[in-house]
Design a protein around this nucleic acid. Structure first.
Length: 574
RNA sequence: CGGGGCGUAGCGCAGCCCGGUAGCGCGCCUGCUUUGGGAGCAGGAUGUCGUAGGUUCGAAUCCUAUCGCCCCGACCA
């Protein structure tokens, strides 16, 4: 970023708060409000204040540099799109309530774009005629609007937000995968340069569909996603996708007799297990869904949880929903809480773990009763289908067979998709191939949540005093804190000359010339997260010393005035 | 959309149950003092009590409606 002369805090605009507004829950949200980075206009709508914009621009520039380096070409598409384009792909209807639709003065339908596949595909089908023009990768960095069901956590899940999205077009699948890899590599460079602790993970392709997909997750305990990874290998996947492999040991032979036991008021597996004095791993949880026009029974072990994405991948279950209580009673003759496969007439789909259990406990399809010693084949039919239904848990075997899985939470800041020809087919985006035939372009799409990165970085880098910016994202890299700026000629002279020298050297430096008390100055500079601080006061100056303190340092270091310029340059170089 | 909660000064809150015309802390303004970790003293400004109806002699307080915001669930960068 080019430095301007105006790096005096008294002429900048800073609005800090001692107390965070009650609306904020998440640390990053609180700190962004307290540091004056954002200002709320409405639910999910935020102004990026001057200091926030400085950070934003640094992030944007790193992304732009790496995108350009990867060969992607920048353009900019409009926020408002005509409905017709979205009707071509069916997403005018299918995108759901998150799509904010509007009408213009002629009563024509428009929408606020939540993403830009349609627009870019339209551009390419009109502009690209020949294989000679491919591959091509266009990107832009702009505002998106998604009418989120529940905006929250400030800029983390805002309705209007900034996203960098790129779209690659190739002549065939091999080309697409090459473009995909190029983007993947660019993303690795971007998040590394931003100074974030992150991990690329295999992801579900979700509603967009496609062949391959990976998410870039910033690791943070407050993350909304859970990722499973294997410390012994490079396996890492979103739990939505992470495969729970079948148990290594085969099903044991039945050892117990089937027994119906009263379990009054005990419906949850934990309660049943405790009541029967059995480990919860012996129980089976019974979940009823409605899909494919019928009520179906899904079984997972009592201590496991259903993976709803996996459920949706079962045959005929793409549109599944939870069964209603009435449907459950009609299908089983029993209220939820005491259900089981024994005697159930409909389809039973068992998780791999459940299929390998013997002598297990499940509901008796009779209120306040469970069955113990249940065995497949003997007491009820083998499950109609055995599938991977559950979320992996810590210490599950890694699907690559190389150890045990660990879980961590993450914030999704980027996502790369090998899309294929879904959109080019719907929108007839074809090119003339070398052999003269018309072929569909193979697409990839690649998103980065630019504004979300700011929040994610704070989640990962803060302490009880405030933000600790990575150098790459700091609104100012160096702060000069003069004590007695307006009292001491010597302090002012050194502060000013240091400010000028650093500015000339291309360093983003902020001189706190407000003449505040030191406590106020330090507190503000720490809150806004400036990574390096130089403190100048008469007390040190009489010995020819100033102080340097890194934002993460516990104590300040004394540095001779004569050495401070080289000292700080050395700090900035690391 | 379903469930829960909150709207009183820029921010954090009290007052509401039990109606009597609004208060505390921080911040802000003025002056003096202070100046190495969110200063001290003195003085001061700031509210259509979210909005609209209703009950009442009288409503921040009770009733109704409405809007906004936050939290928990389904979505995603």
């Amino acid at each position: 970023m080019k430095n301007k002369e105006n790096m005096y805090l008294s002429r900048f605009f800073l609005s800090t708060m001692k107390e965070a507004p009650a609306e904020a829950e998440l640390v990053s949200h609180k700190l962004m409000l307290r540091a004056g980075i954002i200002n709320k206009l409405g639910s999910g709508l935020y102004t990026l204040m001057p200091i926030g914009l400085r950070t934003y621009l640094k992030v944007e520039n790193i992304i732009r540099e790496e995108m350009d380096r990867s060969g992607a070409i920048e353009l900019r598409m409009p926020l408002v799109n005509p409905a017709e384009l979205w009707q071509e792909t069916g997403r005018w209807e299918k995108f759901g309530a998150q799509l904010l639709k509007i009408k213009d003065r002629h009563e024509r339908d428009f929408l606020f774009a939540p993403t830009h596949e349609e627009v870019i595909t339209d551009i390419v089908r009109r502009e690209v005629k020949s294989y000679r023009q491919l591959p091509v990768n266009f990107y832009h960095i702009t505002n998106k609007f998604r009418d989120e069901i529940r905006p929250r956590f400030g800029v983390m899940r805002a309705r209007e937000f900034v996203m960098k999205d790129a779209y690659s077009f190739d002549i065939d699948e091999a080309g697409m995968m090459k473009s995909y890899q190029i983007m993947f590599d660019a993303y690795m460079r971007i998040f590394a340069r931003l100074g974030l602790e992150f991990r690329p993970v295999a992801a579900d392709t979700g509603a967009i569909g496609g062949k391959a997909s990976q998410e870039f997750q910033v690791l943070a305990d407050s993350g909304e996603d859970v990722i499973a990874y294997c410390p012994e290998s490079d396996y890492a996947a979103n739990v939505e996708l992470a495969e729970a492999v079948a148990p290594a040991t085969p099903r044991a032979a039945p050892a117990e007799a089937l027994l119906k036991v009263p379990t009054p008021g005990k419906s949850a597996c934990e309660d049943v297990a405790a009541f029967l004095k059995l480990p919860i791993e012996r129980t089976v949880k019974c979940l009823m869904i409605f899909a494919d026009d019928k009520v179906q029974m899904l079984l997972v072990r009592g201590d496991h949880s259903l993976n709803e994405v996996k459920a949706g991948k079962l045959p005929g279950c793409a549109e599944w929903r939870w069964a209603t209580e009435e449907e459950i009673i009609a299908a089983t003759g029993c209220k939820p809480g005491y259900l089981g496969p024994v005697g159930f007439k409909g389809p039973v789909i068992a998780d791999r773990t459940v299929a390998a259990m013997s002598d297990f406990v499940c509901g008796a399809n009779a209120a306040d009763h469970h069955l113990t010693g249940v065995n497949w084949g003997r007491d009820c039919a083998e499950p109609a289908r055995v599938a991977d239904l559950r979320n992996v848990v810590e210490d599950d075997a890694s699907p690559d067979g190389k150890g045990a899985l660990k879980l961590r939470r993450g914030i999704e800041v980027g996502h790369v998709f090998a899309l294929g020809n879904r959109y080019s087919k719907d929108m007839n985006c074809v090119y003339t191939a070398e052999d003269g035939t018309l072929k569909l372009a193979e697409m990839g799409c690649y998103g980065i949540g630019v504004t979300r990165i700011i929040a994610a970085a704070i989640e990962q880098n803060h302490d009880d005093r405030g933000i600790i910016w990575p150098d790459s994202m700091a609104p100012f890299r160096v702060a000069i804190a003069p004590i007695g700026y307006r009292k001491s000629e010597a302090v002012k002279a050194l502060a000013d000359s240091l400010h000028d020298d650093l500015t000339k050297a291309g360093v983003d430096v902020l001189l706190d010339d407000r003449d505040e008390r030191p406590g106020v100055m330090f507190a503000d500079l720490e809150l806004i997260g400036v990574p390096h601080r130089i403190t100048i006061g008469d007390r040190g100056l009489k010995d020819g010393m100033v102080e340097y303190q890194g934002r993460r340092d516990t104590a300040a270091a004394k540095v001779a005035v004569a050495d401070i310029r080289t000292f700080i340059q050395a700090k900035l170089a690391t």
